[in-house]
Nucleic acid binder design. Structure first.
Lengths: 179, 179
DNA sequence: ACCTGAACACCGTTCAAGT
DNA sequence: ACCTGAACACCGTTCAAGT
């Protein structure tokens, strides 16, 4: 069976889910595929490229969300929740995102979602970009901490904490929009 | 000259500032001290203990802020800004904080600051804790991104982005307090 | 108590050589 | 085109042995 970037990425994600980002090792990914380590370097330039690919895979579901006709604040909430869930769906998912070497095409498609919603809400383009940064920064920061230290805590409590911050941001944004 | 935890920590921070967290190496810290690597393990149990110590050093200035009689929102803003500045004062400072093995005494003293302010603002204890988590999560997330990718950007722009989010959170909090 | 010397088991990366 | 074999320069950690 021939190796290809897809299969390597699948194995990498399995390995990440098992051991977490700190113990994530290109060599172990090769082991999981029953292949010598040099083989992976044919499909991915280096470890960073593999991490970037994992990050893109994590963000992909968000860029595929179906468009909605709901109010902008409802859509922004849905985006933030879906983003957190995407990060939570893999071990250290939030830290993986902050370990990307740069925002690739997927990263740009991802950020375009909240920016678009906020523009439609009537925010000036520059404010929309800033607000989108704030929102994703919050989700990143919250979920990093959540995956680092709060996974023993009941899901309901963690959800409540997240929703509290989301509400604060949304309230602040509503008072700055015209729509 | 005898080695001690202080000197090791100083050298570790110098090394961190030079190469960043990813390239941070216990061996290089030993090199910087002109000492064999085994020597460091007498003063620090392992690499993680050294990172924890760096994090505590970064947070220390905040726990030493002089008490203030200003309004709660002014104090909370001041705390958030000082926290961001503390993180920015060392290479990858924000990522160092999220790499702590656990909240030590310094971490607890640190979190007590915003919690206290928010309690005095009239928030129920449980809301105060949640809001403090939200605020620090935001600062962490924002500053990680800032140190990862925005350090080329003018400081004024980065400050503006940060203040935007801070204002949103503060506005949201004000509508939930009695004081 | 504090440090050296030396080893151990691991990394990521490269690259000629095979097929 | 794709993978193996083998090397290289690095890690963190341990621990007997020295002082």
């Amino acid at each position: 069976m021939a190796l290809n970037p897809q299969l390597v990425l699948d194995a990498a994600i399995r390995h990440l889910d098992e051991v977490g980002l700190d113990a994530f090792s290109v060599r172990r990914v090769a082991d999981g595929l029953g292949v010598r380590i040099g083989a992976l370097y044919w499909h991915y330039k280096n470890r960073q490229a593999l991490v970037d690919a994992i990050a893109a895979r994590i963000l992909e579901p968000l860029t595929l969300m179906e468009p909605s006709t709901d109010a902008w604040d409802v859509r922004l909430c849905r985006f933030a929740r879906a983003y957190r869930q995407a990060l939570l769906s893999h071990t250290d998912g939030a830290r993986v995102i902050t370990a990307i070497s740069g925002p690739g095409p997927m990263g740009h498609a991802f950020m375009a979602i909240p920016v678009k919603v906020l523009c439609e809400a009537g925010l000036p383009a520059t404010d929309a970009a800033a607000a989108a940064d704030v929102l994703t920064s919050y989700v990143n920061g919250f979920t990093i901490e959540e995956q680092n230290r709060k996974l023993g805590q009941p899901e309901q409590d963690r959800d409540r904490g997240f929703e509290f911050g989301l509400t604060l941001l949304l309230d602040g944004l509503r008072s700055r929009t015209t729509a």
